[in-house]
Design a protein around this nucleic acid. Structure first.
Length: 497
RNA sequence: GGCGCGGUAGCCAAGUGGUAAGGCAGAGGUCUGCAAAACCUUUAUUCGGCGGUUCGAUUCCGCCCCGCGCCUCCA
């Protein structure tokens, strides 16, 4: 079995393997750190996270590079408004972004690379392009890429530019009036008053948008990447331009495989500030939603399908996670008879192989999820009949672990993450935005697992001694701190609210 | 206008030329010192509409209706 992935470049689903058979060298377009990340951003990053997690589970090593775009028009504008250097401005949002990634269980790539830390490399890249005749400098000092020199332009987004007069309608940027061809794009922007600028071998100024990705991707991954990923909007012009400049420079294929994640809808409509359905991760957490619910909702629809992100869906995801976590708790805390039931062994291997074959099919996360829920139901039924035995448990937990290596929602770290967002909101003077539900979730962050375990043990002992007054008191005390204690026929167990 | 995607039960959704996964909600039941919870069962004669191909279509083709995306440095 192998991973079949849709490749935007070929327009087909193809078996994906790294060129060297061992290490997947890939690049994913990261955030422009001018504001807090919104759920649309995170759909893409979660999708890439699922890919990287699955590749690793499939035995590959990973070399994953993600850029942090820390210089662009919006950043310059916003930093200027505040009268601070762009570095001071972006630092805050970069940190917030990385924290949000952690909340959502998105692993950090092996290499994060900031645009502003690769200025000389970019200048060098542009100089070499100029030497090959693929770049030229305009009168104001800006550099442009000469599309004319790259006949394959449009091969990724399947656009045919022959005879087209792009920008002929008069929509050309005012400050790009001296391009030779309307399709040519900026590699380097000449300095302007009040804008960050660097002195380089090709003159002063700042990088255009596309050059950073080509430069940094090649620096860390070599001239040909195994895969390049990003949101669907980046296909054109961003990725098309990356291909043009990179392949013009090296004469080699820039990326063998391209993956694009589809945009999501919010309550059935495109997310936009004007529609009032624009949400950052932090907005949702402050409204009382757990990061794990958000992650599950984001992964529950395959990455190439439009995902309708709704509040009802968020509730549904939260309940689904409850079911999965309860199942795991049942396995961990239940009393099981000695022995091993081959029927259960069978269920486990079926679930794991179905999960994997679903993911092999262009990362069909919806189907993979179904395989796990089938296991949950079948094993619960068997357990109710006393047909799950002690020696079945390790394999069951291992299967759940395999599942969670990809989906990352079973280990409950919501309280701590929500707590830190609550703290952030307070520090930003946004107390009134914190919902009571959010505070409820954050509460239990004050108690460590070990602290809870001690109280749970006391409760159980009191209960065994039929000292219900004491046991109930402990249960109430825990509840007040955001921990739910339950006595079931399989034993006592607890979880965070 | 060009290119592309989708319309499946109350909601979210997978899928296939051979008769509809999974989740949530709802309904019924089991268990329980109390509390809470958990678990099980059940829920589409039907896959936007109309034609066509076929022994057979939700799945293929045509037309229509509806929603959405890209073509503007928005993931």
């Amino acid at each position: 079995m192998a991973l079949d992935l849709f490749n935007t470049l070929s327009g087909r689903t193809e078996e994906f393997t790294p060129a060297d058979g061992k290490t997947v060298r890939f690049y994913a377009c990261g955030p422009t750190v001018y504001d807090y990340g919104h759920i649309g951003n995170f759909r893409t990053f979660v999708a890439v996270d699922v890919l990287r997690r699955y590749l690793r589970q499939s035995g590959f090593r990973l070399m994953h590079v993600m850029n942090i775009t820390d210089v662009d028009d919006k950043i310059i504008r916003n930093a200027n408004q505040r009268g601070i250097p762009i570095g001071d401005y972006t630092k805050k949002f970069e940190a917030a972004f990385l924290e949000d990634m952690k909340s959502l269980g998105i692993e950090q790539p092996e290499q994060l690379s900031r645009a502003t830390e690769h200025i000389p490399e970019m200048a060098d890249f542009i100089r070499k392009l100029a030497e090959k005749g693929a770049a030229y400098q305009a009168e104001d000092g800006s550099w442009y890429f000469r599309i004319d020199k790259f006949p394959e332009y449009g091969k990724l987004s399947k656009k045919d530019f022959a005879g087209m007069n792009i920008g002929g309608g008069g929509r050309m940027d005012a400050d790009e009036y001296d391009k030779d061809d309307a399709r040519d794009f900026a590699l380097w922007k000449a300095p302007k008053d009040g804008e960050a600028s660097w002195d380089t071998e090709i003159g002063p100024g700042r990088p255009g948008w596309h050059i950073e990705c080509s430069t940094m991707a090649m620096k860390y991954l070599g001239e040909t990447l195994d895969l390049h990923a990003g949101g669907e909007d980046l296909m054109f012009p961003h990725h098309e331009n990356e291909i043009a400049q990179s392949e013009s420079l090296t004469g080699k294929i820039f990326a063998r495989h391209w993956m694009h994640v589809r945009f999501l809808l919010v309550e059935g409509q495109k997310m936009s500030k004007s529609l009032g359905n624009f949400y950052t991760l932090r907005d949702l957490v402050l409204m009382g939603h757990k990061p794990s619910s958000i992650r599950l909702l984001l992964t529950s629809v395959p990455y190439r399908k439009q995902l309708n992100f709704t509040f009802d869906g968020l509730l549904q995801a939260a309940n689904s996670i409850e079911r999965l976590r309860n199942f795991k708790l049942r396995l961990e805390t239940g009393h099981w008879e000695e022995g091993e039931n081959p029927a259960v062994v069978q269920m486990v291997s079926k679930a794991v192989s179905e999960m994997r074959s679903s993911l092999d099919d262009d990362l069909n996360t919806a189907q993979a999820l179904a395989a796990i829920f089938d296991l949950v139901r079948d094993v619960n039924t068997a357990a109710d009949r006393g047909e799950v035995k002690k020696n079945n448990i390790p394999a069951l937990l291992d299967a759940l672990n395999r599942f969670d290596e990809i989906f990352a929602v079973l280990v409950d770290e919501d309280a701590a993450h929500v707590k830190s967002i609550v703290d952030w909101a307070k520090a930003e003077g946004m107390e009134e935005k914190i919902s009571p539900e959010t505070l409820e979730i954050a509460k239990s962050a004050a108690l460590s697992d070990a602290q809870v375990e001690v109280l749970v043990k006391e409760h159980s002992e009191a209960r065994k001694a039929k000292d219900f007054k004491k046991s109930d008191a402990i249960r109430d005390q825990l509840l007040a701190q955001g921990v739910v204690l339950e006595n079931t026929k399989d034993g006592v167990r607890w979880k965070r609210k």
